[in-house]
């Protein structure tokens, strides 16, 4: 387990910024003086409290399976892929949102695209090819994706 390098951190934040508007809240100090940090272990990036990360240093790299919240993994070509485990963090500061109706939630959870008929409401100023977080009508985050639009 190690902290991220400059380049890695930039790639990770760049990806997160596609979905989140307020990145600064990610590293804001907590009430108890602690803060969240990013850690890399086995190519996976974890979002974890500093105190926990310090405790985890006593576990060897090979033995350490996971800690904190897994945000995603770094590919071998140096890109970053978000995992679904990052959803609660993305949902907290989502830039664009889409609420799907009851009849559209199940198809989305099973891997289909969201069709226009299933959209309950959505952020009006959302452009094309922009990351957005998908919620159910009861404001429960279901997933995230990229917007697409078929011209009329």
């Amino acid at each position: 387990m190690r902290p991220l390098t400059d380049q890695e951190m930039k790639v990770v934040l760049d990806k997160l910024a596609n979905y989140m508007s307020d990145l600064k809240s990610l590293i804001a100090p907590l009430e108890d003086g602690d803060r969240y940090v990013f850690r890399l272990n086995h190519n996976r990036v974890y979002y974890v409290k500093l105190s926990l990360a310090n405790l985890a240093t006593c576990v060897s790299r090979d033995a350490l399976l996971s800690l904190g919240t897994c945000l995603g993994k770094m590919t071998k070509s140096g890109k970053f892929r978000l995992h679904i485990t990052a959803l609660p963090i993305l949902a907290r500061g989502a830039r664009h949102k889409i609420w799907v109706k009851e009849n559209g939630a199940q198809p989305f959870l099973y891997g289909s695209n969201i069709v226009k008929a299933h959209v309950g409401r959505w952020s009006e100023d959302c452009p094309e090819h922009q990351g957005c977080v998908v919620y159910s009508m009861a404001d429960i985050p279901l997933g995230f994706g990229v917007t697409a639009r078929i011209p009329p």
């Binding site: 190690r2 902290p3 991220l4 390098t5 400059d6 951190m9 930039k10 934040l13 760049d14 910024a17 596609n18 990145l23 600064k24 990610l26 590293i27 100090p29 803060r35 940090v37 830039r95 100023d125 452009p127 094309e128 090819h129 922009q130």
Partner: peptide, 29 residues
């Protein structure tokens, strides 16, 4: 490797990335 772990450097990097992304999204919009 040079790690980014202190809050100052991280926040500067964060602001940089965010500004860049904002610009991109703005131009897209």
């Amino acid at each position: 490797k040079v790690f980014v772990d202190d809050r100052e450097s991280m926040s500067t990097l964060l602001a940089l990335v965010q500004a860049e992304k904002e610009g991109q999204i703005e131009s897209k919009m």
